[in-house]
Design a binder for these strands. Structure first.
Length: 292
DNA sequence: GTCCAGGATCGGA
DNA sequence: TCCGATCATGGA
């Protein structure tokens, strides 16, 4: 018997996915994991990934990938949106362990961890250092305009390593990236030259890959974890940024019911899906401006 | 004017 | 190993 692995179906307007509480495109695209999606209407986002432009809409009928064929969905977007992972089961791993975690899980329900391109994720998160999300989006956008392949109507793909390597430091600084320009230039030159490649890390544990990433210019502990989580599909890492520090500062370390947060940050707290927990906590902390 | 943003790097203790 | 100063930029 043939197994039907279709997740949705083709309509005149594009590819349709039925309503799913564990796929909210607004939370997914607005939770700080990606920088190339813009909300162009209350229900619609436009973005570029893998050299493809997409408009995606969510309403009572579910999610619509506009103008998307079945093949394009199966070949690319299905994997990009991580649609073969059961996020209900992931959420269940952390329910009932900590009141603050429960709140964040409910608030962030619908977030999916995107499987983004490694090179784009690396550059984007090096630019993210000591920066805010709207400004990071602007930097990435201007870098794409400066060196990315045009896709039409002022839309450009994320630039290939050699295209970035061809930019002068002055051209890089014109995007507004400031002191991060030398980092980006060194990364592009070494990567384009084939000095290193992420395929060499496929057999390594996440902690070992993290050490390799941290040898690269502009990559510290936090950026390395974000690249692992969003660009290498490693879900067993827990990036700690300023928002996470604010959230953690409100934890009463003497309350055993709030140990979950601390355990996930601690070395011994690593588990297969702690990256998802981190993401819903980050989304809650940033959106609701957790202070204490 | 000061503070902050999905921090990293550097020099010195 | 750990700590503080410094690093562009722009919005609040």
């Amino acid at each position: 018997m043939e197994v039907n692995t279709d997740l949705g179906w083709v309509e005149a307007a594009g590819y349709r996915l039925p309503p799913d509480p564990f796929f909210d495109i607004h939370k997914t695209l607005d939770c700080g994991q990606c920088f190339r999606w813009n909300r162009i209407a209350p229900e619609t986002w436009a973005g570029v990934a893998g050299g493809r432009y997409l408009e995606i809409r969510q309403d009572e009928q579910g999610v619509l990938l506009k103008g998307c064929s079945k093949d394009t969905f199966q070949d690319f977007w299905r994997h990009y949106f991580d649609l073969d992972v059961d996020y209900g089961a992931v959420e269940a791993l952390y329910q009932g362990l900590d009141p603050r975690v429960d709140e964040a899980l409910q608030f962030g329900r619908g977030i999916r961890l995107l499987r983004q391109d490694f090179w784009e994720t690396l550059i984007s998160f090096v630019l993210s250092a000591n920066n805010n999300i709207p400004r990071i989006q602007g930097l990435v956008s201007r870098l794409c305009e400066a060196a990315g392949e045009p896709l039409g109507e002022g839309i450009c793909a994320f630039p290939e390593p050699d295209a970035v390597a061809r930019l002068t430091e002055t051209q890089l600084r014109e995007t507004g990236m400031g002191y991060r320009a030398p980092f980006i230039q060194k990364l592009a030159r070494s990567y384009a030259a084939g000095d290193w490649h992420e395929s060499g890390w496929s057999g390594l544990e996440s902690e070992a890959v993290r050490k390799e990433l941290m040898r690269l210019p502009g990559v510290g502990p936090k950026v390395a974890n974000c690249v692992l989580l969003f660009g290498l599909g490693r879900r067993d890492v827990f990036p700690v940024d300023t928002w996470m520090k604010k959230a953690l500062a409100t934890v009463d370390r003497d309350k055993p019911e709030e140990k979950m947060l601390l355990n996930c940050v601690a070395e011994g707290g690593r588990c297969r899906w702690t990256g998802y927990l981190q993401q819903v906590l980050f989304y809650s902390a940033r959106t609701m401006k957790w202070e204490g």
